[in-house]
Amino acid sequence: MTPRRLLLIGVAAAGLAVSGAGVADALLDLPQDAVPVQDPVGDLLRDTNRAPLQGSQSTPPASTAPVQNVSPPTDPTAAPGTPVVVVTPEAEIAAVQEDVPPEAEIEAPKPAAEPAATPGRRQRRPTAVIQAIDKVTAESMRFEVEVGGRPVRFNKTLIFSVRACEISASDEQTEDAIAYLEVGVQPRGIAVPTEARQIFKGWMFASSPGVSGLQHPIYDAWVVGCKA
């Protein structure tokens, strides 16, 4: 085989490799059809269920035996008819407190200052769960979109891309799921494919869909949560 023929074969192989990589990239950029979620609950938000404490024992009931009256002891060396003085524990404590001078009092230790709590960090999840509805046909679907993955098409027109999805930290007052979405409109089946026209770009909040939602005369869409 001549060197010229070898050179031509090498050039052809390199061309096929480059074209194959381009086709693969183009396929990854194409949106895929939305698939309904089978278990929409899943891991949408942080699990707040707590296992009950185990090994706990109930406190035994207090004894209900009757209290017997105890007569004060008598002094055998005292003369008959001499009254016996009974000193109660309260009287002994009061007598000791009177004998202690004020300068001998000990100050109670001051409680140590509590360290400042470290703010929690939000956890990022690889999948966002989205709810979309067609207000004309009343078609509604809950589907998943992978963060940074292939776009997902709803109702042959609406295209969703997710850039981030995270859940609230443990020290936040409200449990929430937040996702950064890019939504575009691109009808499928047209003769000349065109780039999707973007109609939304920004953060959506699962707890407050009306704060930053999709505004479109035909479609409504909002974030339901994030899944691991």
Rank of each mutant, 00 (worst) to 15 (best):
P3N: 09
P3I: 07
R4M: 09
R5I: 13
L6W: 10
L7M: 13
L7E: 11
L8W: 12
V11H: 07
A13L: 11
A14H: 08
L16H: 03
V18A: 06
G20Q: 05
D25Y: 09
L27S: 11
L28W: 12
D29H: 12
L30W: 10
Q32W: 08
Q32C: 09
A34T: 00
Q38D: 14
Q38K: 14
D43Q: 15
L44Y: 10
L45R: 14
L45H: 15
D47E: 12
D47T: 08
D47Y: 07
T48I: 12
N49D: 07
N49C: 10
N49G: 12
A51M: 15
P52H: 09
T64C: 06
A65D: 08
V67Q: 12
Q68I: 11
Q68D: 12
Q68N: 11
V70F: 03
V70E: 09
V70R: 08
S71N: 07
P73M: 06
T74W: 02
T77I: 11
A79K: 11
V85A: 14
V87M: 13
T88C: 04
E90A: 05
A91G: 08
A91L: 08
A91I: 09
E92D: 12
I93H: 10
A94V: 09
A94I: 04
A95Y: 00
P102W: 01
E103S: 11
A104L: 09
P109T: 02
P111Q: 01
E114M: 10
P115Y: 00
A116I: 14
G120E: 01
R122V: 04
R124S: 15
P126W: 00
K135V: 06
V136R: 11
T137I: 02
T137K: 09
A138Y: 12
A138L: 15
A138Q: 11
A138H: 10
E139K: 14
M141K: 03
F143V: 03
F143E: 05
E144L: 06
V147F: 00
N155G: 10
F160K: 01
C165W: 01
C165D: 00
I167P: 08
S168V: 03
T174A: 13
D176T: 07
I178W: 04
I178F: 13
Y180M: 02
E182F: 06
V183F: 05
G184N: 02
Q186R: 14
G189E: 06
V192D: 11
T194E: 08
E195F: 10
A196I: 11
R197W: 06
Q198L: 10
I199G: 06
I199D: 06
G202L: 09
W203D: 10
M204V: 03
S208D: 12
G210S: 13
V211Y: 14
V211I: 13
V211D: 15
V211S: 13
Q215W: 12
Q215V: 14
Y219Q: 00
D220V: 13
C226K: 05
K227C: 14
